[in-house]
Simulated scan of single mutants.
Amino acid sequence: MKIAVIGGTGLIGSRVVQFLKDAGHEAVPHSQSTGVDVISGQGLQQAVTGADVVVNLTNSPTFDEASPAFFRTSMDNLLAASHEAGVGHFVILSIVGVDQVPQLDYYRAKVLQEDLLKAGPVPYSIVRATQFMEFIEAVLSWTTDGDTVRLPATPIQPIAAEDVSRAVAEVAAGAPLNGIRDIVGPEVFALDELGRITLSHKGDTRTVVTDPTAGMFAAVEGDVLTDKNAHLAATRYTDWLS
């Protein structure tokens, strides 16, 4: 099976390509570095021509009010090119609970991306994952002031990028779901406690202060970023840290 992985050189995309190749598929990575631009459309038709499946792992360069425009333009361009090329399956990566956090610009943008795919002309699959373990340090940096890190106690269920990539590859190699598959990490943490675990493991002397108003995840109410009924990945956070 020939699979075009758009955004195939990034954190998730490069791993997806390798998993697909290991499974015997012809997985071809495409990105701006290979001459493919999802906004201008440059190189898109050539990238998807001959592909049985398109996996779109491109992401908005910002998390603010500009992000919906990125996803609308990129999906319009990719879906049109894929339909013209006769692609039989289109896969995207989204976020567990994304449709339950309308307060966040980026989450609304990802819902838009999902809706465009569902309404589009190509059979599809959506893989929703929880927050990547690889991004936890960035989350800490957003609300660091000197030696203090302010974090809300928002429940999250972090997942390793390796596990996300494996799930995306498995879905891409299968029949279109025409629906959603959720995948989550094996443990739920309060974000502030996860921050303390992370800093302690790294010998970082910053102090985590619980602040329900701090950072992007302060807008999240309840446990919508977790899912007890989803597919459970294997990697535990402390094992990943080690």
Rank of each mutant, 00 (worst) to 15 (best):
K2E: 11
I3L: 09
G7I: 05
G7T: 03
T9P: 05
G10I: 04
G10M: 04
L11G: 04
I12M: 12
I12G: 01
I12F: 05
S14K: 15
R15I: 07
V16H: 04
V16R: 08
V17K: 10
V17G: 06
V17E: 02
V17L: 14
F19Q: 07
L20Y: 03
D22L: 15
D22H: 11
A23I: 07
A23N: 06
G24E: 01
P29Y: 03
G35P: 01
D37R: 12
I39E: 06
I39G: 00
Q42H: 06
Q42T: 14
Q42G: 02
G43Q: 09
Q45N: 09
Q45P: 01
Q46S: 11
A47C: 04
A47S: 10
V48N: 04
T49W: 06
G50L: 13
V53R: 13
V53W: 14
V53A: 11
V55N: 03
V55R: 09
L57Y: 05
L57S: 08
N59S: 13
P61C: 05
E65S: 13
S67L: 07
S67H: 04
P68V: 14
F71S: 05
M75Y: 01
N77I: 15
N77F: 09
L78P: 00
L78C: 09
H89N: 04
I92K: 10
I92A: 01
L93P: 10
S94E: 02
I95L: 13
I95W: 03
D99L: 08
P102M: 09
Y106K: 06
A109P: 12
A109S: 13
V111S: 02
V111Y: 11
D115Y: 07
L116F: 08
L116P: 02
L117T: 12
A119S: 12
A119R: 14
V127Y: 01
V127P: 03
V127S: 05
A129P: 00
T130L: 06
F132P: 00
M133W: 01
E134S: 14
E137S: 11
A138P: 00
V139E: 09
V139K: 07
S141Q: 13
S141K: 05
T143F: 08
T144R: 07
D145N: 05
D145S: 14
V149W: 06
V149I: 15
R150E: 09
L151N: 02
P158D: 14
A160V: 07
A161T: 14
A161S: 15
V164Q: 09
S165Y: 03
S165Q: 08
A169C: 08
E170D: 05
A172W: 09
L177F: 05
I180F: 03
R181I: 00
V184G: 00
V184R: 03
E187G: 00
E187V: 15
F189W: 15
A190Y: 07
D192M: 10
G195K: 11
G195E: 10
L199M: 04
S200K: 11
K202D: 12
G203Q: 12
D204K: 01
D204H: 04
T207K: 15
V209F: 04
V209A: 11
T210A: 12
P212C: 02
P212I: 01
T213R: 10
F217Q: 06
A219F: 13
D223S: 08
V224R: 10
N229S: 13
L232E: 03
T235P: 00
T235R: 12
T238W: 06
T238E: 15
T238L: 15
